[in-house]
Each structure stands twice: as structure tokens, then as C-alpha cells.
């Protein structure tokens, strides 16, 4: 093995590109995710998140560029590398015809570092009987069971691809609680992919935003939120041409008042608005949800009403 390991990065891509015919799923992605803590990956549908995971796990060849996971080329993952990477997908795909006990026994034999206490701790949060068939579990129970299996493998890296999709509020809460507070998660880097900004806000140390296969942001969620600001300006007649507004993410005109969501604009934006004839200018902070969504919807913003 003469593969150089990039210390500290659990995931590293360089110039990673994946095309499906003419469609670009991942576009020259340079991503380096450090080990430790919880990283949230956020992006609209089709942003390339699932494609990225499939490339990283070696289930899809890249068109060009490099992809490494735990320092290993994704195309050459060995069984022992796979042991160190947990992966939970949104469907919580498990062998539905088997009992919980049988699935557990199988995983226990296959994963040398299996931790029964970790499994017991996590599964304890859910009302799962070992004699039940997996197909008889509710979606939430299945998610919990899947998480318990993944955590009991004691992975160094745990990738969760929209794990709470389709879960009800209670199940979602239980899932997050387990993820955040189980002892089994300690020392494990978690990649959390979600559409639910509420979850991201609760769990993420680091917010990674992908859009159209490209990386758009890597920072703690609060840092990103502080980059986006909401300005309310009373501008008689027409506002400035949206194309001239610096850092514009979203523009709305409500009852004659202009609302702008802008990125990376300081107090000088007030001056810009004044210069455009604004009489009264206010700056408001925005929620993470709004910041991320406006950032992501920027590409397909509705035309500004005149």
C-alpha cells in the first residue's frame, strides 16, 4: 500500500466531476472534510449529494478527478476500509424478510469491531423487539435500528444520507437524540445530509452547501447565516435594477416596500440603497433556514415584480 494518506481529512475530492451524458452531477468539486464533529451537507434536489456519496463509496466511477475517503482512493476500497465507514440511506434499506435478531447477528459477525453495548444503547431508544421481522417495523423504528447497526460497527466515519426523510416528528426527534448523545458517536466523524434546516441547525458543527454539483459554502452554520442579511428599503418608484444589486439572493416587493436578501454585504449596502433613492433602510438578521434557502434558490429566483 503506497497510497498517501491525507491526515485529518475523512473525505477529500480534487477536481471531482461526474457527468451523466450531458448532465453534470458533480462539477469540479474540491472538497476536504476534516475528521471529527458533525458536518451537514445541504443542497437542493439534484445538487449532487447522493451522487457524491456513491462516488465516494466506490459505487459510481467518476468522470474525472479524485475522490478519497478515509485517505483511500474510492475506487479501491477494501473490505477493511468499508468496515470503518458507516452508511445510512434515506430508505433504511434492510433485509425486510429477516428478523431483527437475524440481521443483528449477521452484522455482528461481519463487523469485527462490533460493539454490543453501543447497539443496545441505541436500540434501547426504540421499541424494537428482536423477534420482529424488519418489514414489520415502522419507518421510525427501522431508522433507529439502522442507526443502531451503523453505530455498533464503530465506524470512524458515519455518512447519513437524509436519514430522517419521511419520519414523523417523534421518530425524527428520537433519531436526532440518538445521533447527538449516544456514546457510540464519540470519536466518529458524521456527515449528515439533509433537507431539514431545522435538523441542520441543531446538529451541525459545519455547514457544507452544494449546488449543481459544486461546493458553495463550508463554514459553521452561524457564520454562514451572518453572511446573509435582510434589508428592507422604502424606495419610491422602481427599485434598482436587480442585476446591479451586489450579492443579491432574493428580491421581493411587498406593498411597495422592497425586501432584499443579500450575501456578504456590510453597512455599505445601506449606502447603496440610499444612493438608489431609498428613504428608509433597515437591516434584519435572517434565520438559517431562510439564509440557506434563499442562497439555494438564487439561481431560479422569480423575476422582480415591477
Amino acid at each position: 500500500m503506497n497510497e498517501t494518506r491525507h491526515a485529518g481529512y475523512v473525505i477529500e475530492t480534487r477536481g471531482l466531476t461526474k457527468r451523466y451524458g450531458k448532465k453534470i452531477a458533480i462539477d469540479h468539486l474540491d472538497l476536504a472534510i476534516e475528521s471529527g464533529s458533525i458536518h451537514a451537507i445541504v443542497g437542493a434536489n439534484g445538487a449532487g449529494k447522493s451522487t457524491l456519496f456513491r462516488v465516494l463509496l466506490g459505487f459510481l466511477p467518476a468522470t474525472s478527478g479524485e475522490a478519497r475517503i478515509l485517505g483511500r482512493d474510492s475506487r479501491r476500497l477494501t473490505p477493511s476500509d468499508r468496515e470503518r465507514i458507516g452508511f445510512v440511506n434515506e430508505e433504511h434499506t434492510l433485509q425486510g424478510w429477516m428478523t431483527v435478531a437475524a440481521v443483528t447477528a449477521m452484522q455482528r459477525r461481519q463487523y469485527p469491531r462490533w460493539s454490543q453495548p453501543a447497539f443496545d444503547e441505541v436500540i434501547g431508544h426504540y421499541n424494537v423487539q428482536v423477534g420482529q421481522k424488519v418489514s414489520q417495523l415502522s419507518r421510525g423504528e427501522r431508522a433507529g435500528f439502522n442507526l443502531a447497526l451503523s453505530l455498533a460497527q464503530r465506524p470512524e466515519l458515519l455518512v447519513l444520507d437524509e436519514p430522517t426523510l419521511g419520519l414523523d416528528v417523534v421518530a425524527k426527534r428520537a433519531f436526532l437524540e440518538t445521533l447527538l448523545h449516544s456514546n457510540a458517536v464519540e470519536g466518529c466523524t458524521v456527515i449528515y445530509c439533509s433537507h431539514q434546516m431545522e435538523e441542520v441547525e441543531r446538529v451541525a458543527d459545519n455547514l457544507i452547501i452544494m449546488e449543481r454539483g459544486a461546493l458553495r459554502n463550508v463554514s459553521p452554520p452561524d457564520d454562514f447565516r451572518s453572511r446573509v442579511s435582510h434589508w428592507i428599503a422604502d424606495i419610491p418608484f422602481r427599485g434598482p435594477d436587480p442585476r446591479t444589486i451586489p450579492g443579491l439572493l432574493d428580491a421581493q416587493r411587498i406593498d411597495g416596500i422592497h425586501h432584499y436578501l443579500v450575501l456578504d454585504q456590510g453597512e455599505e449596502f445601506a449606502e447603496f440603497l440610499h444612493a438608489c433613492g431609498a428613504r428608509d433602510v433597515h437591516r434584519l438578521p435572517v434565520s438559517l433556514d431562510r439564509a440557506v434557502n434563499s442562497f439555494l434558490s438564487k439561481q431560479h429566483a422569480a423575476p422582480v415584480a415591477a
Binding site: N89, E91, Y111
Partner: peptide, 14 residues
């Protein structure tokens, strides 16, 4: 199917 396939092959077994 993609998720099943990952579930099947992403394990420490060749």
C-alpha cells in the same frame, strides 16, 4: 437498486 446494492456491498466482506 442503488440503495439495496450499497447496503449489500458496503460491508467488510469482499
Amino acid at each position: 437498486r442503488p440503495n439495496q446494492w450499497i447496503n449489500l456491498l458496503h460491508r467488510p466482506v469482499a
